[in-house]
Amino acid sequence: MASASETGHVANREYRSDHEGFLRHRGFRWMKIATALCVVCIAAYFLTDPKPRPGGGTWIGYTLGTIGALLIVWLSLLGIRKRAITEGRWSLKAWTSAHVYLGLSLIVVATLHTGFQLGWNVHTLAYALMMLVIVSGMFGIWAYASLPTALSTNREQMTQGQMVDAIRALDRQLHEAAQPLARGPSDLVLAALEEDPFSPGLLRRLSGHYSGCATQKALEGLALSGSADPEIERVEKLLVRRKAQLERMRRHMRLKAMLEVWLYVHVPATMALLAALTAHIVSVFYYW
């Protein structure tokens, strides 16, 4: 039926992006590289038989340690790469992909480096911190891979600002609709209006359970009164809508929190790891 335009699109710069997520980036390129790295390390570990026993002090231990330390430093640079929007053909997606798979390979590299000699010392502290960083990162991978769809479905094309506006608009209507109500019911509505829908509490936000929700209480209270008064009914309808909006907002906050909360472990633990790693390296060479 048709021909492509002869005058077509030959871009001077190649920037058309592939539609591929960070985990699948370039056909799992970094997963393959990381796996290869692990295989080589394991093979080297088991094919050599250092004396008196495997550990950080053998030549294979030093090699693994160097690889691990370099990896840790490079992985932590993602934080700067992400924020420094410089010119050039870099892609943060490629960086993330490499960060994920090389970060996971550290489990193998660093564990082999220890030669399974763990104890209560600064060396094991560095190892433990590294594992903490990796475990929190694994949570992050899970969150990034599974939550965005839910986030998108929940917001139904609304922006965060629009969600807040929608609740405010309902609040204004509720405020006016509640004017003719008697003392008892109007107190319930006022309590719902006065409640801070974003009341603090990390657990609340992460769990999404708001047990003391005043809007819910107001609804229950009005239902108990059993009144068929049209004014009360109008308020009830508005409260139901407010409840629905609040729930959407809370789900949104919960998902956003889940997507971010692990970073509050991941990043500080990385800082601590870098400090512990420095202490580990310095002490090893100092007490040679």
């Binding site: 929007i85 943060l92 997606k93």
Partner: peptide, 20 residues
């Protein structure tokens, strides 16, 4: 800007794409 649109380059998960 060498490298092309920064919105795409700076997306950590590959969600942002530019298409014709």
């Amino acid at each position: 800007i060498e490298g092309g649109p920064s919105c795409v380059r700076a997306c950590p998960t590959g969600a942002a794409i530019r298409v014709s």
